[in-house]
Amino acid sequence: MSDPDRRKFLSIATCAIGGGVGLVSVAPVLRVILDPAGKETVTSPSAPLDLGPAARFVAGEPPRRVEVIAPVVKDAWTAARGVVLGAAWVTRIGPRPGDVDARSAICPHLGCGVGYDPAQNNYLCPCHDSRFALSGDVLSGPSERGLDALPVSVSADGRLLLTWERYKIGQATKERA
């Protein structure tokens, strides 16, 4: 083999071996870094959460803000107790114990925390001024849909049970996230 030919072969061999070493080095690293994609690393409880006696929600009173607290949340390696998942606005809409309306306090627009405006007796999102009626419907502002109703029920011993769910934000239809 002539010298230039030998050098050419060596050049290609160097690049091939070096490339191989690079690939073998990078592949496991990338695989591990991508591991959490598509995984449920933070679990939310699917079972209903106890919000206390249903009777404490009284018709005609302003909506009550209730913190939604999960007994246990598995967050990657941690099993945390008493984790605040979010908040719900709860109003009584009828006489029967189960006639209670709960709305997620997450704004369907871009996910800020919606507050209650006592002056106008409706909900106001502080980020982009979306207003919602107590029924949850949009009154004004950029939100494309009303506040999301959360599933509630009442247990045999009269306690209000709420199922915490998150919905996709920034769209007109309510869809679980």
Binding site: L10, T14, G18
Partner: peptide, 14 residues
């Protein structure tokens, strides 16, 4: 150095 020494380095790394 390249490729004479480099190919030996690459083999050693591999």
């Amino acid at each position: 150095r390249f490729p004479d020494q480099a190919v030996r380095d690459a083999i050693a790394c591999a």
